[in-house]
Each structure stands twice: as C-alpha cells, then as structure tokens.
C-alpha cells in the first residue's frame, strides 16, 4: 500500500467561504474514503488569512504563494495500491465545482 497526498488548489477567484451544503459534500467525500479504509490522514485546511510567504533575502509577503494564480487550500493523505486509484478518489471531490483542482503526489518516505 502506498500513500498519496491529495493537494487541493483553488484559484484566486474562488469563493472562500463554503456554504453548509459544500461543507456537507466535502465531509461525505472524506468519510466515503474513510469508509473504504483508504484514508491515511484526514489532513488539514490551510488558512488563507494567517499566511505569509518567505523569499530570499528576508523578504516576507502577506498571504500564500499566488504567483501561479492559485493557492493551496488544504490536503488529505490517502492509502491505495496505485496512483490511479488515488486519482479515482480525487475525481469525486466537490472542489471542481468551485473551479479548483487537485494535485496527486505519491509520498516518498524520508529514509
């Protein structure tokens, strides 16, 4: 069994405050993965307000890194045999309705 990080990305235009329905949908998605016993870590949401980006030469800016017009809003870690399975799990996430996307990355354990 391998572990994959699903990294949620939203674009700058996305509505940040989710509706109760959206929260419910996310919860159902997450619990649905847990019900398949494929959730390794339910992860966390990353704050958009309490955020700074640190650059070289002690330059610090407010907010998340948005050079690519996107920011990471959170992550979860799933456990599946293949990356394709992890991708299948990601496909059902409601983030796409908000114009977001999900990056799927295998976790390589530090030796």
């Amino acid at each position: 069994m391998k572990e994959f990080a699903l990294i949620f990305r939203l674009s700058g235009q996305s509505e940040l405050k989710p509706t109760p329905e959206q929260i419910q949908e996310r919860m159902n998605w997450l619990a649905g993965i847990a019900a398949q016993n494929k959730l390794a870590d339910k992860g966390n949401t990353l704050s958009n307000d309490s955020a700074k980006t640190v650059y070289a030469n002690n330059i610090v800016t407010d907010g998340p890194y948005t050079e690519i017009k996107e920011f990471i809003s959170g992550y979860v870690i799933v456990k599946t045999d293949t990356i394709d399975e992890a991708v299948e799990l990601a496909k059902a996430n409601p983030i796409f309705k908000m114009g977001g996307n999900i990056e799927v990355r295998e976790i390589v354990q530090r030796k």
Binding site: M27, N28, A31, A34, A35, Q36, N37, L39
Partner: peptide, 20 residues
Amino acid sequence: LHLYNQLILLEYSSITALNR
C-alpha cells in the same frame, strides 16, 4: 449520517462503514 461520518474518520471498522 453526520455522526457516522465523524465516527468513520475517527476509527475504521467494516460495521461503521456499512452503517454509514
């Protein structure tokens, strides 16, 4: 459903998965 969602996130068991 909401409570089962929380329960399955806390601890997996096949019976919780089915009830959920």
